[in-house]
């Protein structure tokens, strides 16, 4: 039975997950882009390089302005640790590279397994800290909804199941592997529908605000 589940995970489940991921993402981005774009008739203070300011903002705003840093940089660090950790594990674990090679037709060098397990562990820890902070901070506790907790769950699930597969704690390796793959597909399927889309919105939003305020000569 477990072999069948693994076959399912590797086969149709993967295809459907990718289809829903791509289609959902495009639908949501295009759906918003397709809304009315209002012309701004006000006389711009700055006309040169407005686009560049927009592009710059996408990168500059990676870090908080020094003005706010003392209060918020802890939160930035924790989130960067799990974001970076997640992508290192996703892109540089050798079996993952083989998976991508299958789809893309080319691969790249991976990192030693021990490094990957270490990074995976750090990622889980950072995600746990992020969750605890979310619950303990009255502001984030008040704002949090199903999306916040579910997005957290679908992010940590593939990392935890991945670590379990390789820790060999569970005797049925193939079942564990199937669960790991399915958990990743859950992430793919959920991504276009919730806050995980921020990976795309952050570029659109930063660019939009920066362009709006660049023409005023203001900061964004």
């Amino acid at each position: 039975m477990s072999v069948t589940l693994l076959d399912f995970a590797r086969g149709p489940a993967m295809q459907w997950a990718l289809i829903i991921f791509v289609f959902g993402m495009v639908w949501r981005l295009v759906g918003v882009w397709g809304l009315r774009h209002k012309a701004d008739h006000s006389q711009p203070r700055v006309t040169q390089g407005v686009w560049k300011r927009g592009l710059r903002a996408v990168f500059v705003r990676v870090l908080p302005y020094p003005e706010f840093a003392p209060k918020v940089q802890g939160q930035y660090w924790i989130s960067y640790v799990f974001h970076l950790g997640f992508f290192i594990v996703l892109l540089f674990f050798v079996p993952h590279i083989l998976f991508f090679e299958d789809i893309l037709g080319f691969g790249w060098p991976g990192l030693p397994n021990n490094v990957i397990f270490f990074v995976g562990g750090i990622t889980v820890a950072a995600l746990m800290v992020a969750l605890i902070k979310r619950i303990l901070n009255p502001v984030t506790r008040m704002m949090s909804n199903f999306d916040d907790y579910f997005a957290w769950f679908v992010t940590i699930a593939p990392v935890v199941t991945g670590l379990l597969v390789n820790a060999n704690l569970i005797p049925n390796y193939e079942l564990m592997l199937a669960i790991h793959i399915l958990s990743f597909q859950l992430l793919l399927i959920y991504l276009p529908f919730g806050k995980l889309m921020h990976g795309f919105w952050l570029m659109v939003s930063r660019w939009t605000t920066a362009v709006r305020f660049a023409r005023r000569g203001g900061l964004s």
Binding site: V32, L35, F68, D147
Partner: peptide
């Protein structure tokens, strides 16, 4: 009535980080 792509982008983008409170 005056909803366009700018406002929609903003509505979509919030990750509930609560950082704005500090400002």
């Amino acid at each position: 009535k005056d909803f366009g792509y700018v406002a929609a982008t903003y509505m979509e983008s919030c990750v509930h980080c609560g950082i704005c409170a500090n400002a």
